[in-house]
């Protein structure tokens, strides 16, 4: 029965049967893992608050052959991210980050860069006042890491590089910008300004530490939201559930 140890962020925990919890974790060494924490509801001593979403732990787990779920043995809290759970907007935004990782990442595929990205954004959310553009930056970076990267450097149809004199629109299906020769003014494609295209190119290319300096104009905020949410919905096949709460808070 192989034992494993890794740093992990709790993405979701749901009650299972009388005393147990089913936990979705994003681990540094093994990617996304689904596991069962036996007795987690009954005994606070064993897991305590370690299975709350956002918590970064060092987890020990093992796997029995033929069982789809890993068995969580113990958790040692490394960072509980309490600042997130004390602010309603941070909880709403944070839940969205966790849901995207939970939906978009394949199970048991190691991707330390995704783990690093998630921790970086949880730290950002924890330390600063919440801004909605953080979500857009996260969407762009996560999709790039997972192979869904929307294309903003060149027209996805003819391959011509981005030029300032061109008028561009975004194709959800093709996953990138279309030049005027290719979109032919078709209103079905979403419009976006040069400013937004250049901003998104920057977001996709700069190092993690510099991401925090990026600010969106009101126009880019609106265009980015329309494009990226539609783009994600197209790939996921549904609207992320946590978006509804974000929208509710805005009202």
């Amino acid at each position: 029965m192989p034992f494993f140890k890794s740093e992990a962020v709790v993405l979701q925990a749901t009650d299972y049967a009388e005393y147990d919890k089913i936990v979705s974790l994003y681990t540094k060494n093994y990617g996304r893992i689904k596991g069962i924490a036996r007795g987690a509801k009954r005994s606070q001593k064993r897991f305590g608050g370690a299975l709350e979403p956002f918590t970064c732990n060092e987890v020990d787990f093992f796997e029995k052959e033929g069982h789809g779920l890993a068995r969580l043995e113990s958790c040692r809290i490394l960072n509980p991210y309490t600042a997130i759970s004390q602010d309603i907007n941070k909880i709403a935004y944070g839940n969205y980050l966790l849901e995207l990782v939970n939906i978009l990442t394949p199970e048991r595929e190691k991707h330390p860069e995704v783990f690093r990205l998630l921790l970086f954004f949880l730290n950002l959310l924890s330390e600063q006042s919440p801004r909605e553009e953080i979500l857009r930056i996260f969407e762009l970076r996560l999709t790039s890491l997972l192979g869904y990267q929307p294309q903003f450097l060149q027209c996805v149809s003819c391959g011509q590089s981005f030029r300032l004199q061109e008028d561009y629109r975004f194709s959800i299906k093709k996953g990138g910008i279309l030049c005027s020769g290719c979109h032919k003014g078709n209103q079905a494609f979403l419009s976006l300004s040069h400013g937004t295209i250049k901003l998104f190119q920057q977001v996709q290319q700069v190092s993690l530490v510099k991401l925090n300096r990026i600010r969106f104009s009101p126009a880019s905020r609106g265009e980015g939201k329309a494009i990226l949410l539609n783009f994600l919905e197209y790939h996921i096949g549904k609207k992320p559930k946590s978006l509804e709460f974000i929208e509710h808070l805005k009202q």
Binding site: P53, I91, A92, N95, L98, E99, N102, K241, S242, H248
Partner: peptide
Amino acid sequence: VIAPLEGIGPD
């Protein structure tokens, strides 16, 4: 309880 990940909102 409000549970955004399960789609349960205040309403």
